[in-house]
């Protein structure tokens, strides 16, 4: 009760599948009052499970997302772009760290999470399984993928789990710089020479499908989604977030003379909903299950890094130290 930290194994008890009805009612009442849930609180096993899955995936996405961009640091056009890209990539790794820490408070260790990433057991954002072939790809990622992520992160920062909200607040602050530098680079190419403009248009043409995939498959309002939204694990449906993203960013793409490679994309003013061609959800499923252009390369890079850093980590380990779940 007043103990200093708590050891990982103790957590198992709290993930029992049998949820106490009275505790569940108190838990839901707390969320309804707009209060946050903290790590040591009682929580339904499914709440814990879904949060770990979501925060862990988010953390992996930051780590893997830094790879296509990191590749371009040496080739960024100009000193200022290079500095900005270095700062952005460092931020992304910092975000991963904040998120792993938040997930750890739920009882899964960082080592376990990274192992699950390496074996392909846990996923990361599907967009990072596509290559960044030119500088314009980095520009599209920096502007539109980050924009999509911000829509998602701003929504989730109002969720019910305290540590995740705290991490996201800081992340959103740094993301505002990512978005702005991406927008700046995007405008520079769009309004530059014909070669620059064409390179950007080509990159956007290739990235449009992954961008439409970004917020996940269309909602089937299932019992499951409804429960996660009631528990404020999910704050908006995939379709709502995609719609909000299109509302905000389609005008910003069109206003500088770039076209969107979907003739059916238009806003239905009556419903407020965007209509678009099927972005090929079969491809989405195929790629997320490992068969994308870069899946193997992304994981191979992580493997390489873990393997070659292992001797440093183990050399500094103190076998007498016990792993304790972080506090907040």
């Amino acid at each position: 009760m007043y103990g200093g930290g708590y050891i990982q194994e103790e957590k198992q008890e709290a993930t029992s599948p049998i949820d106490d009805a009275q505790k569940l009612a108190e838990f839901e009442a707390r969320i309804d009052r707009g209060e946050k849930i903290e790590p040591h609180d009682w929580m339904p096993a499914d709440y814990r499970k879904q949060l770990i899955r979501m925060i862990e995936q988010h953390a992996h996405s930051e780590v893997i997302g830094a790879l296509p961009e990191g590749t371009w640091i040496t080739r960024a056009p100009g000193f200022r772009r290079k500095l900005a890209l270095i700062a952005k990539v460092q931020d992304e790794i910092g975000h991963a760290h904040l998120l792993y820490s938040a997930a750890e408070t739920l009882g899964k260790s960082r080592e376990q999470m990274i192992n699950d990433l390496l074996t392909g057991k846990s996923k990361y954002s599907n967009v990072f399984n596509y290559p960044a072939k030119t500088w314009a790809d980095v520009t599209v990622i920096g502007f539109l993928i980050d924009a999509g992520a911000i829509v998602n992160q701003v929504a989730n920062s109002k969720g019910s789990y305290g540590p995740y909200c705290r991490a996201l607040e800081r992340i959103c602050y740094e993301e505002s710089f990512h978005l702005k530098q991406g927008h700046d680079a995007f405008i520079t190419l769009a309004t530059g020479t014909k070669a620059q403009h064409d390179m950007l248009q080509d990159a956007l043409n290739r990235w449009w499908k992954p961008i439409m995939h970004f917020h996940g498959p269309p909602d089937k309002i299932s019992e499951h989604t409804a429960k996660l939204m009631r528990w404020k694990v999910k704050m908006a449906t995939n379709d709502d977030m995609r719609n909000q993203f299109l509302d905000m960013y389609v005008p910003k793409i069109l206003e500088i003379g770039i076209t969107i490679p979907d003739p059916n994309l238009k806003k239905n003013e009556a419903t407020g909903q965007w209509e678009f061609s099927d972005p090929d959800w079969d491809e989405f499923k195929r790629v997320i299950n490992g068969d994308g252009p870069c899946n193997a390369e992304r994981l191979a890079v992580r493997q390489y890094v873990e393997e070659h850093g292992k001797w440093v980590r183990t050399a500094m380990m103190n076998p007498n130290q016990k792993v304790v779940i972080p506090f907040a």
């Binding site: 590749t71 040496t74 820490s101 750890e104 260790s109 960082r110 080592e111 990274i114 192992n115 390496l118 074996t119 390369e297 191979a300 890079v301 493997q303 390489y304 873990e306 393997e307 292992k310 980590r313 183990t314 500094m316 380990m317 103190n318 076998p319 130290q321 016990k322 792993v323 304790v324 779940i325 972080p326």
Partner: peptide
């Protein structure tokens, strides 16, 4: 380019991170 330099395909192996290998918090 970094991956080309390290010849990733030939050095690739499966690494599992041991408990506590990322140290205490």
């Amino acid at each position: 380019p970094r991956i080309k330099r390290v010849d990733l395909e030939s050095t690739y192996g499966t690494t599992a991170i041991g408990e506590n290998e990322h140290w205490i918090s």
